[in-house]
């Protein structure tokens, strides 16, 4: 990651301003800039909560509908796949959390495209704020939005009878794994947004990613042999398996066989490693594209 200029460093320096008066400081600090931008995006989300609430409603519907429709069939399939005694609602929980996370993550790219369209992007670039802080603040607000949604959906699922075997610590771990997936798809949506510069394309891309990836993973039913090879290349597989390992308190990873860390960790360690690696890869691309969009290079 290469910042486009040294603005983060220089932001605190003396600047001549005002009607001939010298203001000793622009008053900008890196963390101040992060906070300012996090606040802006949070305010926007609070003023227009429709999308946020709809994502929670959709996740809740999925939870209710899938468990009602597939409940009995699902449990028979679960028993055959070595999940005997696990109720389908609990098995389904990771799928619904992934769905909510991905949907929410794509709003990051949509927000970016709207800022590019409305001129707010340029308006933000031309301020003395640190470029890095601007996007860190935006990402922080988006991650916070995902956390709130996850907590609501988790609460509803538990109220409906889902069980998290690893307790509160495990639930915190579930949220952490979901945030890794969220960060990954925030990066994906920003890359799509910067390449297409069209919020409808970003919206379509969210559907294009969400459904195939969810169905080509062990999200709804245990993996069949047919799709196991494909699922190994699907980031959602690792997110679902890591969350499920925490929910059930045991090793659930099927696409890789790891045995050196012990039970739950046999899933968690490789799954988290894969998600971190993907984040670094796609994140670097997103940061590069954002840096180029904010730079003063004449193209």
């Amino acid at each position: 990651m290469s910042a486009p200029d040294a603005d983060a460093v220089a932001a605190g320096e003396t600047a001549v301003s005002g009607t001939g008066t010298t203001v000793s400081d622009t008053g900008n600090t890196f963390f101040g800039d992060v906070r300012v931008n996090a606040e802006r995006w949070t305010r926007k989300a609070v003023h227009n909560p429709t999308a946020f609430l709809l994502e929670i409603v959709v996740a809740t519907f999925s939870l209710v509908l899938f468990s009602a429709v597939f409940g009995d069939v699902g449990e028979a399939a679960l028993a055959r796949a070595g999940f005997a005694g696990v109720d389908y609602l609990t098995f389904l929980l990771p799928a619904v959390l992934m769905q909510a996370t991905m949907g929410s993550a794509f709003s990051s790219g949509m927000g970016l495209v709207r800022d590019l369209d409305s001129g707010m992007f340029e308006k933000t670039v031309v301020t003395p704020m640190s470029w890095t802080a601007v996007f860190a603040g935006k990402a922080a607000a988006e991650l916070a939005r995902i956390v709130v949604q996850l907590v609501v959906v988790l609460g509803l699922a538990v109220a409906m009878g889902a069980r998290i075997e690893t307790g509160l610590v495990g639930a915190a771990g579930v949220v952490a794994v979901c945030l890794l997936v969220g960060l990954l798809f925030m990066a994906v949506s920003n890359v799509v947004g910067l390449l297409a510069r069209d919020d409808e394309v970003v919206n379509a891309a969210s559907m294009l990613f969400m459904f195939p990836l969810l169905f080509l993973s062990p999200a709804f039913v245990p993996l069949s042999d047919d799709i196991e090879a494909v699922a190994a290349f699907n980031p959602i597989t690792y997110g679902v398996d890591a969350v499920r390992a925490l929910v059930l308190g045991r090793d659930t990873l099927t696409v890789l066989s790891v045995s050196r860390f012990g039970d739950t960790a046999n899933t968690l360690v490789p799954a988290v490693a894969v998600l971190v690696a993907l984040n670094l890869l796609v994140g670097a691309l997103a940061v590069r594209l954002l840096a180029r969009a904010s730079s003063a290079e004449a193209v």
Binding site: D5, A6, D7, A10, A11, E13, A15, V16, S17, T26, R40, R43, K44, H47, N48, S118, G119, M120, E122, K123, V126, T127, P128, A296
Partner: peptide, 29 residues
């Protein structure tokens, strides 16, 4: 305002106001 636009970008940005050709306000705020 005495600052070079390339070498001293942040100082220039702090010293100026800029109103773009397209109206740039956050409509949700």
């Amino acid at each position: 305002e005495g600052h070079d636009v390339t070498a001293d970008r942040t100082r220039v940005r702090a010293a100026i106001g800029y109103m773009a050709q397209e109206t740039s306000v956050d409509e949700e705020l």
